[in-house]
């Protein structure tokens, strides 16, 4: 089997498995999985920047929220329907990540983390400041009637699940292709050794900027999809906590692997969901698990698999 067919088999297999799960999982778990797939898109967007380009951002909630509010405000205030609303979300995320990226990329390392963090904080406060439109921390509901795409009601469990799956699949396959493309390989080269990539004649700044914009737009797509599928937009999603989540998902699942973000998001969700059934102190358990993972599976779950079992894992 060539590397390309093996890749294709893996990714299509994952998607087939996800599609098949709809028919076997009980309602509660398929509902969870729909949500996880939307959030995994966020994680995949984050992974492109962090896992493949080596840039650690602490401000991705800004992009997630830009997508979310782009869609929600267009639909709520502008009375747009879902499709142009989704596009508005993507454009909002694209513009915000373009500006934030152009500025933040003047810095590196920890300063990059802090600048992205502060941009996101400013974004969060901006949401509060325009409370007349955004209803600040409280947020607002996108009416159930408006949440349909091309005549398909997105509020039924099945439609929601497959809408989430289509978005997830598109991003999943797109990124799997991207990281094997010359563009993706250049990003990896930058991650491994930026000075060398520069010496080889690559305009690394332009590559990194494109990575930020792509990563931010994918994150925004996730935010817009969340608002559309679950009917709510609120400032909570712009807080620091929501910048840290994709970092955790990606690190748990395995940074720089295509499958890692999904695994990380599933793992984290069920860790909290199961632990909260056992004890109120589920964050304690989550904390202990995080520490243990860093001690014993530092490459994340998929990364550890790659190291130990399947060295070909993309």
């Amino acid at each position: 089997m060539t590397a390309a067919t093996r890749d294709a088999a893996l990714h299509l297999g994952v998607l087939t498995l996800l599609a098949g799960l709809w028919f076997v999982l009980p309602t509660y778990h398929s509902g969870n999985l729909a949500r996880i797939m939307v959030l995994a898109v966020y994680a995949m967007g984050y992974n492109l920047l962090f896992g493949y380009t080596g840039l650690l951002s602490l401000g991705h909630a800004l992009f997630f929220a830009a997508g979310m509010y782009g869609l929600a405000i267009a639909m709520q205030q502008g009375g747009w329907s879902a499709a142009p609303g989704f596009l508005a979300g993507l454009i909002a995320a694209l513009v915000v990540s373009g500006v934030a990226g152009a500025l933040a990329l003047r810095t590196t390392g920890v300063a990059f983390m802090i600048v992205t963090l502060m941009f996101a904080q400013a974004g969060y406060l901006t949401v509060l400041y325009f409370g007349a439109i955004t209803r600040g921390d409280e947020g607002f509901v996108i009416p159930q009637a408006a949440r349909s795409l091309a005549g398909i009601d997105l509020t039924t469990p099945a439609n929601r699940y497959f809408a989430a799956l289509i978005l997830f699949g598109a991003v999943f396959l797109g990124l799997a292709w991207l990281v094997r493309s010359p563009f993706g390989r250049t990003l990896i080269a930058i991650r491994e050794n930026e000075a060398r990539a520069k010496m080889l004649g690559y305009d690394t700044h332009a590559y990194k900027l494109r990575a930020v914009i792509l990563s931010g737009t994918i994150s925004g797509a996730s935010g817009a999809a969340y608002a559309l599928l679950f009917g709510y937009a609120g400032a909570t999603f712009a807080t620091v906590q929501y910048s840290i989540f994709p970092l955790l998902w990606v690190l748990l699942g395995g940074a720089g692997t295509t499958i890692g973000p999904l695994i990380g998001a599933i793992f984290m969700f069920y860790l909290i969901d199961l632990a909260s059934g056992v004890t109120d102190a589920y964050m304690l358990i989550a904390g202990v698990v995080l520490v243990l993972l860093t001690l014993f599976a530092p490459q994340g779950l998929a990364g550890t698999l790659r190291n130990r079992v399947w060295p070909w894992l993309p």
């Binding site: 970092l247 955790l248 989550a286 904390g287 698990v289 995080l290 520490v291 860093t294 001690l295 530092p298």
Partner: peptide, 14 residues
């Protein structure tokens, strides 16, 4: 990177 995750874990625990 691992330190960041570990200290986030520590944050939750504390």
């Amino acid at each position: 990177e691992r330190t960041i995750v570990a200290t986030i874990g520590l944050l939750y625990i504390l």
